[in-house]
Design a protein around this nucleic acid. Structure first.
Lengths: 228, 228
DNA sequence: ACCTGAACACCGTTCAAGT
DNA sequence: ACCTGAACACCGTTCAAGT
């Protein structure tokens, strides 16, 4: 769908269109041909603005990270934070709000080892906050490993309820009897989750609550080792 | 390369060959045609034993998980463990030894939400160990979220040193001056890592040490909340 | 019953040709 | 200078044909 006069193609237009496609139809739908179609242009035209598909995907990561950094810049300065944890926690949860707008981003960030200026800036600020809070460089280093992707606001869920898990649940219905025999603790877990399934949770687990629980677990552990 | 007489094709032969290809050349090299070639057979012959490529990849995950469960079964019973943490920790580190033999597995496990019998067994035993150690069902539930993929022995590294990171390091050499100005804390981190680069570490970070640090951080945090 | 061959739809990418 | 069209190599997959 080319709207009105044909605008000149730019790298930014290519990337923002690719981002639209990803937001709408997932990362798998981001093909050179699909992005070109959306721009009302032939696939080969894109190659004047990105070297290849890898560079396009890296560009998508950069876009999301830029959005994270923008959001973090809007955070008000905390004058007398009681602890480095509250400021680090706030930054990470801010990153998370951006990640939640682009659900495809975690997978893309995980799979590509690309460390662009945006990510460097994000992690530099994160490290700065820890150091300002009295953490040693060594602890900061270990913190980055311990946090992993959680530092960027997401923790890859091993099983996404609704994909294959949901299908399996249907199949399991047939043999629910020996299922309960074979995996009694999983069943206990599942019923506990059902019980907690009140209005405040979306589906089985409330991801945000779980994310914050895991995050605080790590931050508290780090603080304990800092104050050792 | 078809060795001697043409053996009959079986699902197991297809899966174990696919696993060989993945171990040798990475998960991207696992194509229907490549696996078939390795078996000295045409690509379409595989479709009699796996429904499609998705099922083949799920089969690969199942194989690795089966290997994990086999390894866990060999663990000797601990008669008087001081704590649920030591037994959970041991199971997870055992899973990790298997994962390290199949570096492509983490990505595959993360991206597919498949919860087969093997994974159910693994998690059932893991939950059992926590419950036997005095953890509430609620805590076990939260532990699974907090651990995430770490429960299976891996935590996805955000930046793999040696891939794009290494390339960036070369490029950064050109502008090392303003790099240090723009990301002073990252530089501090990097030099700290260099300093620790003795014989016991492979490259910048010793992954095993970092994995265990993060794991213990979470286990200790959970124990603290259990004993509350 | 089991495997093959040719074909289709889709992908990233190259390259010569158009304007 | 910028975009197009046809083509190539590779992928998963279908289907009729071979043995």
């Amino acid at each position: 769908m080319e709207a009105g006069k044909r605008e000149r193609l730019t790298r930014d237009r290519v990337l923002s269109t690719a981002l639209e496609v990803a937001d709408a139809d997932g990362i798998a739908a981001v093909t050179m041909r699909a992005v070109a179609d959306q721009l009302g242009v032939e696939a080969m035209a894109l190659y004047r603005h990105v070297a290849d598909k890898d560079e396009l995907l890296d560009g998508l990561v950069d876009s999301v990270v830029a959005e994270i950094n923008d959001a973090c810049r809007l955070l008000p300065m905390l004058q007398h934070p009681p602890d480095w944890r509250v400021v680090v926690r706030r930054r990470i949860l801010t990153a998370r709000t951006v990640i939640l707008r682009h659900r495809w981003a975690p997978q893309l960030i995980s799979v590509r080892g690309t460390l662009g200026p945006g990510l460097l800036e994000y992690f530099d600020h994160l490290c700065a906050e820890m150091i300002a809070g009295g953490c040693s460089i060594d602890l900061v280093h270990r913190a980055m490993h311990a946090l992993g992707s959680r530092a960027l606001g997401f923790s890859p869920e091993l099983f996404v309820p609704g994909s294959a898990a949901a299908d399996n649940a249907d199949i399991a219905m047939d043999e629910m009897a020996n299922f309960a025999e074979k995996y009694p603790h999983i069943i206990a877990l599942a019923s506990e989750m059902m019980a907690h399934d009140d209005a405040s949770t979306v589906g089985w687990c409330d991801d945000q609550t779980e994310f914050e629980f895991g995050l605080d677990l790590i931050l508290d552990g780090l603080e304990a080792r800092r104050a050792l």
